[in-house]
C-alpha cells in the first residue's frame, strides 16, 4: 500500500547550509497493519508523513500510496489517505458536524451516503455531544476526535497519524488508540508516528526507528528485540540512537583529523 524508496528531503539552512531532514528513507506498509514510526523530536517523522500526505515534495526519491506517486499524482493520492497530525487543526468557527461534512463533501461523497457515514462515525467516536459545538469551544480531546472523524470520513484505505496522541490525557489517548486499532482491524493500512514507546508496543505491528532523517531499524517489535537482544523497547530505542550518535561523532572526528592532516601536508 505504501512504498517509500530512498526518500530524501533537504532544506536550505542559513547557518548549517543544507539541512537533510530525510536521508534516503526506505519504508513499506501494508493493508491491515499499523506501522509505527518511532523517533525523537526532529527525527524527520513529520517531514516523511507530510511528503506521504502530498503537502511537501521530496528532494529526491519516490513514495507511492496505493500505486499513486505522491509528487506527480498528488490529487489521486489525497483520495487514498486520511491524514491527521498535530498541525492539522480544526476550524474555530465551524461545528464538529459542519467540519466533518465539509471534508466529506470535498472527498466527493454523496449527501445521503455522507449523512449515514457521519451518523455512524459520530456514534462510534462518541461525538454526539459535540455535534453542534464550535471548534473554538472544544477541548483538545474533542478536537482530536473531530480530526479523526474528518480523516476517516471518506473511508480511505491508508491512514496517516502523526503524533496524534500528543497533548491528550490518558483517557482520550486510550480511546484514540482503540479507534486506531479498530481501523487496522477493518483492513486499513496505518502509519502511526509517535515518540511514546508504550503506545508503539501496544499498537504497532511493525515499527521503524528513525533518527536524524534515517531509519535505524525496521521490523516487528519481536524481531527487533531478538536482533538487538533487548526486551525493553525504550531501552532498545535509546541504545540505537546513542550508537548512531556515537558513530556520527567518530566519523566527524575522523573527517576532522583527515582534514587537519591534509592541511599539514606538503
Amino acid at each position: 500500500m505504501i512504498h517509500v524508496c530512498q526518500l530524501t528531503k533537504e532544506y536550505a539552512d542559513l547557518r548549517r547550509g543544507k539541512l537533510v531532514a530525510l536521508d534516503g528513507v526506505n519504508l513499506d506498509a501494508y493493508a491491515g497493519e499499523i506501522l509505527g514510526l518511532l523517533g525523537p523530536n526532529g527525527a524527520g517523522k513529520t517531514t516523511a508523513l507530510r511528503i506521504l500526505s502530498t503537502v511537501l515534495r521530496p528532494t529526491r526519491g519516490t513514495a507511492s500510496i496505493n500505486g499513486y506517486d505522491v509528487v506527480t499524482q498528488a490529487a489521486q493520492v489525497r483520495y487514498q489517505i486520511g491524514f491527521m497530525s498535530a498541525n492539522t487543526g480544526v476550524y474555530d468557527r465551524m461545528t464538529a458536524w459542519e467540519m466533518v461534512e465539509y471534508f466529506g463533501r470535498l472527498y466527493g461523497l454523496e449527501a445521503e451516503e455522507l449523512r449515514q457515514r457521519m451518523e455512524e462515525l459520530f456514534a462510534r467516536l462518541q461525538m454526539q455531544e459535540i455535534r453542534d459545538l464550535l471548534g473554538a469551544k472544544m477541548s483538545t480531546g474533542m478536537r482530536q476526535k473531530v480530526s479523526i472523524a474528518r480523516a476517516i470520513v471518506h473511508d480511505p484505505p491508508v491512514l496517516i497519524f502523526d503524533e496524534a496522541t500528543s497533548g491528550l490525557d490518558v483517557l482520550v489517548a486510550r480511546a484514540l488508540l482503540r479507534t486506531v486499532a479498530e481501523l487496522r482491524d477493518c483492513g486499513k493500512c496505518i502509519v502511526f508516528s509517535t515518540h511514546i514507546m508504550r503506545e508503539a508496543e501496544k499498537l504497532c505491528d511493525r515499527v521503524a526507528i528513525m533518527h536524524r532523517g534515517r531509519i535505524l531499524a525496521q521490523g516487528t517489535i519481536e524481531e527487533l528485540r531478538d536482533v538487538y537482544h533487548e526486551r525493553d523497547l525504550e531501552e532498545l530505542f535509546f541504545r540505537l540512537i546513542s550508537a548512531h550518535d556515537a558513530g556520527e561523532t567518530r566519523q566527524a572526528d575522523a573527517e576532522h583529523t583527515a582534514r587537519a592532516l591534509a592541511g599539514a601536508g606538503p
Partner: peptide
C-alpha cells in the same frame, strides 16, 4: 496561524 491550512491542503481539493 490556526493550523487549518495543512488540513485543507491534505484534502482532495486541488
Amino acid at each position: 496561524e490556526r493550523g487549518t491550512l495543512e488540513t485543507l491542503l491534505s484534502s482532495p481539493a486541488q
